[in-house]
């Protein structure tokens, strides 16, 4: 039979020795790390009946303290709304200053530094700081979520402005428009629908995050949840979890609906 030309498949790592050595090294590391983590299999084994016990105590969920539940839920929603609102307002100057095609270099760098800095730490860490400063309660929660919302919305806004075709900006500048007129007649109409969409998305995210920051004491339904867990009120915890689920579901539904209305 005639000898066929050579062919081969393309692998991520061509050298078969290196490839197989890497796989073997990975497996060895996995075994080593499992042994070094010192996993106590007896405790893991005891965990399962305990989980079953907790689950058993969770049913039926206890809605009898519905007033506390309602107050926590309303507080969470208010925290999310307030934080989204302040975030939307603060994001406008930060976003405009953070767009290379609008702001001079020093202002641009300052705005970008603000955005990066506030994205560096997770909400939980920021919440712990604010709880230390302002004490337990929703003030710390609102501030935390405001920081997170501002950095998120302003980053999106800045990138949206930077992606605008330069021709439109040039054309409105060439008419002799002032800076604020330029914002009003060129930047705002082009950026508004996406800005609103991002803000609504952020409102939805804030409702989810407001339940988390409560756990470190920053107010809202999360704080109620943490308290119920520490008091072994598992049936009340279940009621809170169900409430959070429906809240997040409603938030997502609302945000999707609003964004579908924007074009």
């Amino acid at each position: 039979m005639k000898k066929l030309p050579e062919w081969h498949r393309i692998r991520i790592i061509d050298n078969p020795v290196i490839r197989q050595a890497l796989v073997i090294a990975g497996i060895i590391y996995l075994f080593w790390s499992m042994s070094s983590l010192d996993i106590d299999w007896v405790r893991v084994g005891k965990g399962f009946p305990r989980a079953a016990n907790i689950l058993a105590h969770m049913f039926p969920p206890d809605f009898s303290r519905w007033q506390l539940l309602l107050r926590g839920t309303i507080e969470s929603v208010q925290m999310a709304l307030a934080a989204s609102f302040f975030g939307m307002i603060l994001a406008i100057p930060v976003g405009i200053c953070g767009a290379t095609n609008l702001a001079p270099k020093p202002i641009y760098l300052a705005a970008r530094a603000v955005i990066i800095l506030s994205r560096t730490f997770h909400e939980i860490i920021i919440a712990i700081f604010f709880v230390k400063i302002f004490g337990f309660g929703p003030v710390a929660g609102v501030l935390t979520l405001t920081v997170a919302s501002t950095s998120f919305i302003s980053k999106m806004l800045a990138e949206d402005i930077e992606n605008m075709p330069s021709g439109q900006l040039e054309a409105v500048r060439a008419t002799g428009a002032g800076f604020f007129q330029f914002l009003n007649y060129c930047i705002s109409p082009q950026a508004l629908p996406r800005y609103l969409g991002v803000s609504i998305y952020r409102l939805d995210a804030n409702i989810r995050h407001s339940t988390v920051v409560g756990i470190v004491g920053a107010g809202g339904i999360g704080q109620v949840l943490a308290a119920s867990f520490s008091r072994y009120d598992y049936d009340f915890s279940m009621a809170i979890l169900l409430t959070i689920m429906s809240l997040v579901f409603l938030g997502e539904f609302f945000s999707n609906w609003v964004r579908s209305q924007l074009r």
């Binding site: 075709p165 021709g167 040039e170 054309a171 409105v172 060129c186 109409p189 082009q190 508004l192 629908p193």
Partner: peptide, 10 residues
Amino acid sequence: FQEYNLVERL
């Protein structure tokens, strides 16, 4: 301009 450069959403 060549690309007209109108503000499209206005």
